[in-house]
Computed example of a mutant assay.
Amino acid sequence: MMERFRPLLTANGLTEQQWRVIRALNENGPMEPRQISDICTISSPSMAGVLARMEAMELITKERFADDQRRILVSLTKKSIGLVRVISKDLEARYRELERVVGPEVVERVYSAIDDLLAGLE
């Protein structure tokens, strides 16, 4: 599946992990790195590197909590929010094309099977 979507991310200068982080922050608002790791299923050591690169690319900002300097809050930048708008439109078009090719019923069965799998793992 990612073969259909990876070129879109690459064309916008993003890795799959970076896109997962951007999506998570866009959907949930600012979070701590540990929370992002959990949502994106990226290990904490890997997340540190991903966030450092994203900060250097001006895709995120990091801010320390006033009451606990050990804690960091990660937020999207305007640049990332713009990328969400652009990429989301293209992704939606690719999902519609996928549904056109295989049929919406097949896509719905796949989503349902994934939901069942995730529920079974909890």
Rank of each mutant, 00 (worst) to 15 (best):
A52Q: 14
L117R: 14
S46P: 02
N28G: 09
I36K: 06
A52H: 11
K62R: 15
A56C: 03
A93G: 03
G103R: 04
A119I: 02
I114G: 00
E99V: 07
V101L: 13
A52V: 10
T77M: 03
E32Q: 15
A56E: 15
V86M: 02
R109F: 06
G120P: 10
D68S: 12
E63G: 02
I72W: 07
Y95N: 00
D90V: 13
R20I: 05
E58Q: 10
K89Q: 13
L118C: 10
R70T: 15
P30G: 02
P104R: 12
A56F: 02
M47H: 08
R109Q: 12
S88G: 09
V106Q: 04
E16G: 04
G82Q: 00
M57N: 13
I114H: 06
V106A: 10
T61V: 09
R53M: 04
R71I: 06
T10Y: 11
L8C: 04
V107N: 06
R4H: 10
L83T: 01
K79G: 00
P33G: 10
P45K: 08
I42L: 09
R85K: 14
I81E: 13
Q17V: 06
E3Y: 01
A52L: 13
L14I: 08
K79W: 00
L98M: 13
V102N: 10
E27N: 07
E97M: 09
I42Y: 04
I39M: 10
A66H: 09
G49C: 04
L98K: 05
G49Q: 09
S88A: 13
I42R: 03
C40H: 05
E97L: 12
R71W: 01
K62M: 12
E99G: 13
E122G: 15
E108D: 15
P45Y: 05
T41H: 15
Y95L: 08
D115G: 02
G29D: 09
R71K: 13
L83Y: 02
E92I: 08
L121E: 14
L76G: 02
F65E: 13
F65G: 01
E105A: 14
L73M: 09
T41A: 14
R4I: 14
Q69I: 12
T77S: 07
L83V: 01
I39L: 14
V86Q: 07
I39G: 01
M31D: 09
E3A: 07
M2A: 00
V110L: 14
P30I: 01
R4Y: 08
V21M: 08
M2T: 00
K62V: 08
E108K: 15
S88Q: 14
A56Q: 14
T61E: 07
G82F: 00
V101N: 10
I87R: 04
S80Y: 03
M47N: 04
M47W: 05
T41G: 10
R20N: 08
T77G: 04
A113N: 11
E16L: 13
Q18C: 06
T41F: 14
C40E: 05
P7Q: 06
T15I: 05
M1P: 01
R71T: 03
S44Y: 08
L83D: 02
Q18A: 10
L59N: 00
A56S: 11
V21N: 04
S44T: 11
I72A: 07
L59H: 00
K78M: 05
T41W: 12
